[in-house]
Design a protein around this nucleic acid. Structure first.
Lengths: 333, 333
DNA sequence: TTGTAAGCGTTATCAC
DNA sequence: GTGATAACGCTTACAA
């Protein structure tokens, strides 16, 4: 058998002249141990460089103090900000996060959940509402407390986010209010959230009697500025009468904006352009980009807080939070 | 004692009519178990929904199959690409990565190492070469195999990266070759890598007899486009004779570029601007940005491969790799 | 190829 | 407030 890290709780106990369980208590529930022993133990810990083993602790207590976070991408700032918010809440609480990036592939998401279950996470933070049936089955089979991020559901699941559909509709209404009549939609990736923004856009245009399915350009490939530029070309080639473009995210919109400048297309005079997410660069483009600011960091924080609540207290309500969104109206529209 | 996840290896063993150890072998070293039992066991695993426990496995085998990755920031694309490369190598090998983000704070880096040692990672991937003395002490005390990313050292540590100093010097020489004579430097964050790029810049300018300490503007705050714009203002206000600016990263450079356009400063005619990292947006700015492309994804992949090698084979050489860099000469210079 | 026994480092339980 | 003992779920060492 290979050597472990070396120093164990028993070593500390021996050095401090107490029993192992007292060391355990001194570290986890200091209130239950006398001042004198606590100090002796602290000294022994320092002297020996003792580091407790999470494996042993998890095994004995059936709590891993670990939360699984499943996100569709690590290269999208949106999820990074969310992760950052989660981290800010989980770390001080003594929880560690396991990050699973499934590259927008729900099969891989399922595999990741399966793989990470080996760590017996105490809870899961999930992105979006739609998943493989087996994914949901696994969650309930293991009775895993879960919080869903980024969107809202009305089926009792605990959600922290905002209505993607409402946000899409709000932006479409803004463009209508600006007097635009041929409002196109550029979509990439086509994940759940993009499709909901699209649904909101359709709803708003239908209400105004301005919907035209031939003004929608959808591409399942990952979005990028390059793709935004290319889609702009294609859109204007097919429909030169288009007078506004709602892009499903800022990357696409920034690429489209760039191509407009290259081709001498006046924004917003001839064509209005809008994005989604309010990335840093959106305020810095030429012209500055109209977009939707999303409370992604707050979503992470709030979701993590909610999960902690569920872990502390089994009986807690699975309360959802709608954190809203904000239209950022800039010069591109 | 609270219930665990439920199904254990013994349950599987009972259902398959074998002993627990045979189940263990069927899962980890299938070659050592007969076809017949393997199939029986596989069936039992499926039927019961058995998921092995990493805690138990780690405890019994003294190997966690886990690697710690310490990075200074999650909001910098550079490190995300690196993470992504690491993930691509570690995951197929059955290793899970623990991600520690220390926000460019070496004290927090030390704390994170301490905290993550509780998981008994089999190895560590570290960003940069300079760390707290206690950090190095902890590493060697726990005899943790480590690979250092992003830079190169000649002290026997296993490094995967490129020479930050050479890259800084190369860009400065490019600007000199373009006929620039008052070449300034904009630096933010001032982490180890920025300071080495600065050192390279100084070296090159000294060699050319063109170094002028009053052309260096350094700010320890995190970099952003906003800061780049502000620093440009300050620099030109103090030194209107400056004819080139080497920015320590692309964010700064893009902000500077933006402000130049606002103020009507001709780039590159009156002022050349260069960045570092070659982010996506660098090719899309107006004018496109001259910068240094860095092999960050490859650094992650190669570092992870090297670590795996060290974990498989204790006697393996700690071979460093210089993955180089590439000047991307675009219109801004 | 398969099984038995012991132990990994911690915590729950119950006693003092 | 402190301690003895028995798990937790798995793997190593050794035996058959």
């Amino acid at each position: 058998m290979r050597a472990g890290s070396g120093v164990t709780m028993h070593d500390v106990a021996r050095a401090a002249g107490v029993s192992a369980i007292t060391v355990s208590r001194a570290l986890k529930q200091p209130g239950q141990v006398s001042q004198e022993l606590r100090e002796k133990i602290a000294r022994a810990v320092d002297m020996l460089g003792y580091v407790p083993s999470r494996s042993a602790s998890a095994l004995a207590s059936a709590r891993s103090r670990t939360a699984l976070v499943l996100i569709p991408s690590l290269s999208n700032t949106v999820f990074l900000d969310t992760l950052s918010g989660i981290e800010d809440v989980l770390q001080p609480a003594g929880y560690q996060m396991l990050i699973g990036n499934y590259h927008y592939d729900s099969q891989q998401e399922l595999q990741l959940l399966r793989a990470y279950l080996q760590h017996r996470p105490d809870g899961v933070l999930i992105t979006g509402l739609a998943h493989e049936p087996q994914f949901d089955a696994l969650l309930s089979r293991h009775a895993l407390p879960a919080v869903y991020m980024m969107d809202l559901a009305d089926d009792g699941r605990c959600c922290v986010g905002f209505s993607q559909e409402d946000a899409g509709a709000a932006m479409a209404r803004h463009l209508l209010a600006q007097g635009r009549r041929k409002i196109g939609f550029l979509g990439a990736q086509l994940d759940e959230r993009v499709m909901k923004r699209l649904a909101g856009y359709r709803l708003a245009l239908h209400e105004a009697g301005r919907h035209d399915a031939a003004l929608e350009w959808l591409n399942p490939a990952p979005s990028s500025m390059q793709m935004g530029a290319d889609m702009l070309d294609a859109a204007l080639a097919q429909r030169p009468d288009c007078d506004a473009l709602f892009c499903c995210n800022d990357d696409l919109a920034l690429g489209a904006l760039f191509r407009c400048r290259e081709k001498g297309i006046a924004v917003p005079e001839r064509l209005a352009v809008a994005g989604f997410n309010d990335l840093q660069a959106a305020a810095w483009s030429t012209p500055p980009l109209t977009t939707v600011a999303t409370p992604r960091r707050q979503i992470g924080e709030q979701a993590a807080r909610q999960l902690l609540r569920m872990l502390e207290d089994d009986a807690v309500e699975a309360a959802s939070s709608d954190l809203g969104f904000q239209l950022m109206l800039r010069r591109s529209s």
